[in-house]
Simulated assay, not measured.
Amino acid sequence: MEAKRKTCVITLFDEEAKAISYHHVPQDLVAAAIAKSASVDVPLEDFDNQVNDDFARRLGGMILMILAGRSPFLKSHLSLTTEAGRDASGPSSEPHARPPETGKRSWWGKKP
């Protein structure tokens, strides 16, 4: 059986249309852009190789938070709850709040 062409999903937020779009693109067509970009790696072994509902929720939430970091409109409409129960759309209202101690990948809420 021949291996299929590697692909990736590009996620965009269009400020004008107020829409999130996903593009399924052959990886070799965007290889130069990938080489020049920062990556956020999520080792599946950190989640016992389980790609389940909780993993999908966290991955989707992370992607939305990344997009919202560049979009004032999307950020103002983001309403996600983190593991600690804090609203992920902005900073905590507590004056000396610290993020929860959750291990090396705290943005995932992965417990040590």
Rank of each mutant, 00 (worst) to 15 (best):
H24D: 12
H24C: 01
H24N: 06
H24E: 12
H24W: 11
H24S: 10
V25Y: 04
V25G: 00
V25I: 15
V25M: 08
P26K: 10
P26S: 09
P26E: 13
P26C: 06
P26I: 15
P26D: 07
Q27C: 06
Q27S: 13
Q27V: 08
Q27G: 00
D28R: 14
D28M: 07
D28P: 02
D28T: 14
L29N: 13
L29H: 11
L29F: 15
L29S: 15
L29E: 15
V30K: 03
V30T: 01
A31R: 13
A31K: 05
A31I: 11
A31H: 03
A31M: 09
A32W: 09
A32D: 14
A32V: 11
A33F: 07
A33P: 01
A33G: 02
A33L: 07
A33I: 05
I34L: 15
A35V: 03
A35H: 11
K36S: 13
K36G: 02
K36D: 11
K36H: 06
K36V: 00
K36F: 10
S37P: 03
S37R: 07
S37K: 00
S37W: 05
A38G: 00
A38H: 03
A38I: 00
A38F: 02
S39C: 06
S39E: 07
S39Q: 09
V40I: 09
D41I: 14
D41W: 06
D41E: 15
V42E: 05
V42G: 01
V42F: 09
V42M: 15
P43W: 09
P43M: 12
P43H: 08
L44K: 03
L44V: 08
L44D: 01
L44N: 01
E45I: 08
E45P: 00
E45M: 07
E45N: 11
D46C: 05
D46F: 03
F47D: 02
F47S: 01
F47R: 09
F47E: 10
F47W: 14
D48M: 04
D48Q: 08
D48G: 01
N49K: 07
N49G: 10
N49T: 05
N49S: 04
Q50A: 08
Q50Y: 11
V51A: 05
V51S: 04
N52G: 11
N52Q: 09
N52L: 04
N52F: 06
N52M: 04
N52P: 02
N52T: 05
N52A: 02
D53V: 15
D53A: 15
